[in-house]
């Protein structure tokens, strides 16, 4: 079995994986980082979004071996100790989550949006979120939270 080595949340990790192992499986099963979720099998729900080399990526759509050597950040690595990342804080402040299942992917995706387009309009925010499905919130408060984080990030 191939061995992969990558940096995850600032720590160097490596593990043996079957070649077909997805990045999300490596994160969840080998590293026990269960904050990254799997909500579909067609790369559409976005519950599995992490950052790979600084860009948001669906970790169900990437093999672990493709992330060999990469710098990966998951939801567990976003906060600074006990201090929430401004996007996490904004989701809490604006009630941008309910059941919490889509939340890790939603937050990771939103962080990438604000980095890439800090002044995104509501329309642009909604278009960016096309790849993240939430069944609970109707997106209303997610959009508000991202708009808030545009000010605080």
């Amino acid at each position: 079995m191939p061995t992969v080595t990558m940096t995850v949340n600032g720590k160097k990790v490596s593990g043996e994986v079957e070649a077909r192992t997805l990045l999300v499986q490596f994160l969840r099963e080998n590293l026990h980082l269960t904050g990254t979720h799997v909500g579909c099998d067609t790369s559409q729900c976005g519950a599995c979004v992490v950052h790979v080399n600084g860009d948001s990526a669906k970790s169900c759509t990437m093999l672990a071996v493709q992330a060999d050597g990469a710098d990966v950040v998951t939801i567990e690595g976003l906060a600074n100790g006990d201090e929430l990342h401004p996007m996490q804080a904004a989701f809490k402040e604006h009630h941008g989550l309910q059941c919490g299942f889509c939340t890790p992917g939603m937050v990771m995706s939103a962080v990438d949006l604000v980095k890439k387009n800090p002044k995104a309009t509501e329309h642009e925010i909604r278009e960016w979120l096309e790849g993240n499905i939430c069944r609970c919130t109707g997106y209303h408060n997610i959009v508000k939270a991202i708009q808030h984080a545009q000010q605080t990030m």
Binding site: L33, T34, G35, T36, H37, T74, I75, E76, L78, A79, L84, Q88, F91, K92, L97, C99, G100, F101, T103, P104, V107
Partner: peptide, 11 residues
């Protein structure tokens, strides 16, 4: 919220 936002929910 804190556990869900930090990836520490237990589903």
């Amino acid at each position: 919220d804190k556990r869900f936002l930090t990836g520490r929910g237990t589903y």
